[in-house]
Amino acid sequence: MSKDQGGPDAFEERLRAARQRQGLEPRPPTPGQDAGDQGPSALAVGMRVSVELVSALAVACAIGWGLDRLLGTRPWFLIAFVPLGGAAGVLNVWRMFAPRRGAGPADTKHSPPPAGR
């Protein structure tokens, strides 16, 4: 049995390949495919981007206004937080399109499942 020399890992690998051929296992997620066949529509993307931008700005304004109200320094914190909110919005949008570092599927493959939980 030359194929068994790889040990249990090779067996797992062959089992997975066989299951995949039979369609028993979900396909491994390939980049660019998991968002549907043609991807989200331009309108949906635009909607998401605008929501991200506006929500960060709204939170920043709320924080700045609240701090001003607490400390009686109106309008300085509001002025300081509005550009920060804009930057946070851009950061949100960047996070939306940037490749995710150490995303889920890679973790499930490499780290062993927690035993006995």
Binding site: M47, R48, V51, E52, V54, S55, A56, A58, V59, A60, I63, F81, L84, G85, A87, A88, G89, L91, N92, R95
Partner: peptide, 24 residues
């Protein structure tokens, strides 16, 4: 000094973006 507030705002803005997306 600049980046930590931005990250905090970005974290908190999830509350709004997540709720507004579904609602809208």
């Amino acid at each position: 000094v600049l980046l930590v507030p931005i990250e905090v705002i970005s974290y908190l803005s999830r509350i709004i973006s997540l709720s507004v997306r579904l609602f809208a």
